Simulated assay, not measured.
Amino acid sequence: MTPRSLLLPVFDGVQSLDVTGPVEVFAGAGRHSGDPYEIRTASLGGGPVRTSSGLTLVPDCDLAAVDTPHTLLVPGGEGTRRPEPGLVDWLREHAGRAERIVSVCSGALLLAAAGLLDGRRATTHWALCDHLARTYPAVHVDPDPIFVRDGKVATSAGVTAGIDLALALVEEDHGRDTALAVARYLVVFLRRPGNQAQFSAQLAAQTARREPLREVQQWITEHPDGDLSVESLAERACLSPRHFARAFQAETGTSPGRYVERVRLEHARRLLEDTTDGVEQISRACGYGTPEAMRRAFVKALGTAPAEYRRRFHPATTP
């Protein structure tokens, strides 16, 4: 086992982005740091596999011939629903020897089938979380985060979350500067922390059909510290407050007040995770006005105060 070896088992029906996204991150980190990862793909029998999008991948070798890698990264895709005979057996026999076991999207189903997630907290694509929980009750499924670390096992949500998790692992291996350089090169965010929800406020709500209401949704997102009262937002949409509130609820599936709460909470979480700004400064930037108002919002939604949230999810920014 070499410290920088990375193995990706591939199979018919694999999601190509689950493979190529993380591989680009790790390959880029190797180029930037001068300490490259030994990246290999392998299939049962060593033959080519056809991805869910129709692309053909030619693996480096046969799974039966590979040494135990430092990091085993199991991608997802339609092929995880009916895995090839022997793939789960291989994982059950060999995966536990790796220093890190990682899955992207529905790759968690393969890890669960091999018993590697028993007793662990894990996540997967939001559309599969219920299936994972029902099929494998020994797994503690958390449907919210984009990725979850539990000991040496890490699981991630949909395809782009695999990139986020790969960046987190690169930061662990090579430091923040390398991870940031890779993220900039790939034009992705560094860093979406694992606890970030799979759905942003904008995705959790429906997009309004009418242009004035869509513009209001965008305005709320861009101005969390503004006057976001129903009266002010209704004026922006050129509607009466009563008509605006009814139309917003009908077209987005949530009330204006609830949408504003989600946007402000999401913005505050991001600032606590990614900056060293004080709680008072963040409370003003997010429209709460006072630290106490922000604290009440956090306790109500997350069961924890802002300062504790920062200590838990981004201790490096804690004074």
Rank of each mutant, 00 (worst) to 15 (best):
P3Q: 06
R4F: 08
F11Q: 06
D12E: 07
G13N: 06
S16K: 07
V19M: 10
F26A: 13
A42V: 13
S43P: 12
P48C: 08
R50L: 07
D62F: 07
L63G: 12
D67G: 14
P69A: 09
T71G: 03
R81Q: 13
R82W: 04
E84Q: 15
E93P: 04
G96E: 13
R97M: 02
E99D: 11
V102G: 03
G115P: 02
H125P: 01
A127T: 10
A127I: 06
L128Q: 09
A138E: 10
P143S: 13
P145S: 04
I146F: 00
T155E: 03
T160H: 09
L165M: 14
D173G: 12
H174V: 08
G175T: 09
D177A: 14
R184Y: 02
Q196C: 03
Q206V: 02
A208M: 03
R209K: 15
V216E: 04
D225K: 06
L228Y: 04
E231Q: 10
R236N: 07
A245P: 10
G253S: 15
R258T: 15
R264D: 00
R269V: 08
L271I: 10
E280C: 06
A285P: 09
Y288T: 08
T290W: 08
V299K: 13
Y309H: 09
R310T: 02
T317Y: 10
